[in-house]
């Protein structure tokens, strides 16, 4: 199974990638840090899934080569983890809507949740879930908060629990 991390530039895709796979990648506070695909693996239940850190893009109509790479990848993924900047919801959702128009299942990681709280931004996660029709999980990638919930709610993934 292939998991794609997609989202606008500088929303923390690489930080989430690091959290999921344990693979170290360069993370910085400016857009365009990731220009190549970075691949890693994570254990999901009893199977391994490939996780791909896709360069950031604002739309699915690419302008730069890094964005072309992103759109090209979308065809090959099984699940898209759409990383959204909670402090920039309005800007981020355009790509989310475009992703939802495609056939690949989507889960939204509402990242930088801590920073949004500090900025006085309150987001009704349940309502957002209902409106988008896909799971939404608040995360703080840099500290690892919310990553477990994100993984447990991945669409099409049944995590077997020992009974």
């Amino acid at each position: 199974m292939k998991l794609l991390l997609m989202g606008n530039p500088n929303v923390g895709k690489s930080a989430i990638f690091s959290r999921l796979t344990g693979v170290n990648v360069i993370v910085s506070n400016y857009p365009g840090t990731t220009v190549e695909l970075k691949k890693g693996a994570m254990k999901l239940g009893d199977q391994w899934a490939e996780v791909i850190d896709v360069p950031g893009t604002y739309t699915l109509e690419p302008i730069s080569r890094a964005e072309e790479v992103a759109v090209e990848m979308l065809k090959k993924g099984d699940v898209v983890i759409n990383v959204v900047d909670a402090t920039n919801l309005e800007r981020s959702l355009y790509l989310t809507l475009q992703l939802l128009e495609r056939k690949t299942p989507v889960i939204v990681a509402l990242n930088m949740w801590d920073e949004a709280k500090h900025k006085g931004i309150v987001i009704d996660v349940e309502k957002l879930e209902k409106l988008l029709g896909v799971p939404v999980a608040p995360t703080v990638a840099i500290t690892g908060e919310g990553i477990k919930e994100l993984v447990s709610r991945l669409p099409g993934v049944v995590l077997r629990t020992v009974t």
Binding site: L89, L97, G120, I121, V122, L128
Partner: peptide, 19 residues
């Protein structure tokens, strides 16, 4: 249409307090 949809969603789920 997409931006209108974004606007509709954001207005329903997000509140920003003054600071």
């Amino acid at each position: 249409q997409r931006w209108a949809e974004v606007g509709r969603i954001v207005s329903q789920v997000q509140t920003v307090t003054h600071r």
